[in-house]
């Protein structure tokens, strides 16, 4: 039995919105093994993205702890958390978040500026990754000159540039057509096959078949498959009414 790579213990994240407290994550205890491909699924507002951002060190929990590769994120200060994001995590966003004024090559190389790598090394590595995602011929194109699928592939190359162990993808196919989405999922599967741990948030349950395990969230809690199906049925019934 392998040692858990990721461990959530008593995790809570509450947001105060006016007089109301929204319990985005409401007590999650969960482990994820290394070299797995996890799909986090659930209806809108179930806390999927919040869980991903907490795991990525982009936000701090209200209570509980998150441990990644033996590192307790609660105990890291802002600088250590930035170092964790730089070295350990690669983010892929639904809306790509490419910098419009930069070429594909510059976008991919961008995170390496904060890793104090020299320009030649940055460009070499970025070109290598663009080749990996099939966009070497688009290296000097700006995002506006690329299709949605190509932009997301550039974003994937950027996520890999610092060679992270953990890939966090937030609805990576959400803004793509079916064909482009399939290509992106294939890329993520390849990354998993190469030994990386992938956590993907998706609202599309069909994509969970590519994952090695599925985490189902409802109202900020992890639920069983049966409970999850029941929650979806309730949601569907409400929508029909």
């Amino acid at each position: 039995m392998s040692t858990p790579f990721i461990r959530f213990a008593g995790l809570r994240k509450h947001f105060v919105m006016g007089r109301e407290t929204v319990r985005a994550i409401d007590s999650i205890d969960l482990t994820i093994d290394q070299h797995t491909f996890s799909a986090v699924v659930g209806p809108s507002g179930s806390g999927k993205s919040t869980l991903l951002y907490l795991l990525g060190g982009l936000d701090r929990p209200t209570a509980g702890s998150i441990e990644v590769g033996g590192q307790n994120l609660d105990q890291l200060d802002e600088n250590d958390l930035a170092r964790y994001r730089r070295r350990m995590v690669g983010f892929i966003f639904q809306s790509f978040n490419l910098i419009a004024s930069m070429t594909a090559l510059e976008n991919v190389a961008f995170p390496m500026r904060f890793a104090r790598r020299v320009r030649r090394e940055r460009n070499q590595r970025a070109l290598e990754l663009l080749r990996l995602v099939g966009l070497a011929n688009r290296a000097y194109h700006r995002p506006i000159e690329l299709s949605g699928g190509q932009q997301q592939r550039v974003a994937i190359a950027r996520a890999l540039v610092n060679d992270p162990q953990l890939i966090l993808a937030d609805e990576p196919t959400g803004n793509l057509d079916t064909h482009s989405g399939a290509a992106i999922i294939q890329l993520l599967s390849d990354l998993h096959a190469q030994g990386r741990t992938v956590v993907m948030v998706t609202h599309d349950p069909r994509l969970s078949r590519f994952a090695t395990n599925t985490i189902r969230l409802v109202d900020g809690r992890v639920v069983s498959e049966a409970d999850y199906e029941q929650a979806l049925a309730i949601d569907a019934a409400r929508a029909a009414d």
Binding site: G56, L58, E78, N79, A82, R83, R85, R86, R87, F91, N97, I99, F110, P111, F114, A115, R158, N162
Partner: peptide, 16 residues
């Protein structure tokens, strides 16, 4: 603002 968020997501420190 989103660019700042991205900078931080890819490892920029507050000082950067």
């Amino acid at each position: 603002t989103r660019e700042i968020g991205l900078m931080k997501a890819v490892g920029a420190t507050n000082r950067d």
